[in-house]
Design a protein around this nucleic acid. Structure first.
Lengths: 295, 295
DNA sequence: ATCCTGATGTAATTTTGCTACAAAGTGAGG
DNA sequence: CCTCACTTTGTAGCAAAATTACATCAGGAT
């Protein structure tokens, strides 16, 4: 009962509440923003129950008094109202829509942050740091994430590739060795071709890191499974949220790898950043002068 | 003084505060998490000032009393402590690191949400809806965003492309017409080749939508400028945050376009989602039977 | 040096949230 | 169908927390 944000907990525990506490829950869910600004007495009046009932409600959903409840609710609201509560509607104005989509994205990231397993992350970083080659594979939205990783990891001194189509992916898996790490990204964890490719890599002794949205065949096939659990997403209008969280997870792995590599890799990254800034604006490569400064 | 989260405002207004109010600010910035749980009296004692001073401090930074301050602070903290406050350090454990990177990402999204111009967004959607062709261009991290958009918009019935390299981009711009929309994505807004490409498209009468991190040459060249202002990012360890916000902005535009297109496009999207689910798991295409159900 | 302005603290007031207890409702067993 | 036990809800009083009014103190200008 103590996991997740208050709003999630209220939703979850609706059935276990007493009748008048439930009335409180309804009001809170109907207008969380408004409730945040209310005082105990005001909320009691709005709901139509007595003040102690509100306090008992707060305790029931795992808060330590009304004070604590209000603060936790404020935090919940700051992250945006959970997706189940705010559905995108055709009548929404632009500002509302922006609000809803950003809220949804933020809530989703927050959710992943709370449910990510640091130990699995540690092992993934360990494997990648030790690898002679890293292959990222994914299709569709996850393919984008793989490409993003491909941009990132070479900077850390990790040779890597992100083959785009299924054949190229299969090929890369077929040529993998025990020192290869295959990072398979698939939100469903059930995409057939990805699973095939993973099996081949396993057979050849490669270490498989699976990034996926929940327990699935891919989880089973992975040596290291990273569950990046995004929120339910049945709505037609709702954008694909999983890739955002996946990207942040990749960011985290990259940063951890960089930290493990220590100062030597750091110098390279700094130099790269400077060079890139020059290149962007079209200045010619300046050679020695800069090198001395950067290394 | 009323924009941004409380922590941002405190940072910003540090100089304008009175001496003892500043002491309050220091304590709050040093341990925002702790302060959230404190009562007025406790905070007063911790800081070493009187209670009214705390109240005056709260008013000074734009809150309506201590109550309001505490709630706003709680919300600020929920989003993660702003990047300037929490720097990634080599000594950080995995859990801390995950926390910091997610916090940073979430804060950044929140920041963009607050600073995004809905009217510019409206105009961008209008242009894209009316376009006969949409071209997304970007390089590096922004290139990933362009590719993401390329995956998304065809579903909405908008013919589009996202040429990868500078030559292909230049070519696409060169063949653009007045009914073409060119969406140029560049966080700096100063990448030379992107600017060149944009100029060509403009000359040919295309509408240019610029997605960029702040006022820049690209902003000037754009018919519609979308400022996606991500937080400062000077640290070596800090991952590239801009693309996350850019992706969400693309999501928003896509969703708005879908809403404008109405029911007909919706049917297509639904059908696509169903088909895709089948294809993923390797089931054969089932033709008519499904069609009847979906259309 | 003294007066004035603005910053800070003290104390009283008001508001707010909590707790002990009483009343009302509910259901099971006689 | 009544009664007793138990659960749920409300009442009232109390403690603590926040706000406000006012007094004092510090620092700068005349």
């Amino acid at each position: 009962m103590n996991a997740g944000t208050v709003l999630e907990r209220i939703n979850k525990g609706l059935e276990t509440l007493r009748r008048s506490e439930r009335k409180v829950a309804d009001v809170v869910l109907a207008d969380p923003h408004g409730v945040v600004r209310m005082t105990l007495a005001e909320l009691a009046e709005t709901v139509g129950v007595s003040q102690p009932t509100i306090v008992r409600f707060a305790n029931a959903i795992g808060c330590d008094g009304f004070h604590d409840f209000r603060i936790q609710l404020a935090q919940s609201v700051a992250l945006g109202i959970p997706a189940t509560q705010s559905v995108i509607e055709a009548e929404d104005g632009t500002a509302t829509l922006v609000s809803k989509i950003f809220d949804f994205s933020i809530t989703s990231l927050d959710h992943v942050r709370r449910h990510l397993d640091p130990q699995a992350l540690d092992r993934a970083v360990g494997a990648i740091t030790a690898a002679s080659r890293v292959v990222f594979i994914g299709l569709g939205a996850s393919g984008i994430v793989a490409m993003d990783a491909e941009q990132k990891f070479p900077l850390l001194g990790v040779p890597c590739s992100a083959p785009i189509d299924t054949h190229q992916q299969f090929l890369a898996a077929s040529t993998s060795t025990p020192s290869t790490v295959l990072v398979a990204i698939s939100n469903t964890g059930r995409t057939a071709s990805i699973l095939d490719t993973v099996r081949v890599a396993r057979d050849r002794g490669a270490t498989v890191v699976g990034i996926t949205g929940g327990p699935s065949p891919l989880t089973e096939l992975s040596d290291i499974a990273l569950i990046v659990e995004s929120l339910d997403n049945t709505d037609v209008y709702t954008p694909t949220i999983s890739r955002l969280a996946q990207l942040v997870v990749i960011d985290t792995i990259a940063t951890m790898t960089l930290l493990r590599r220590g100062e030597s890799a750091l110098g390279d990254v700094r130099e790269m950043k400077t060079r890139l800034a020059q290149m962007r604006t079209g200045l010619p490569y300046q050679g020695g002068a800069d090198r001395r400064e950067e290394i």
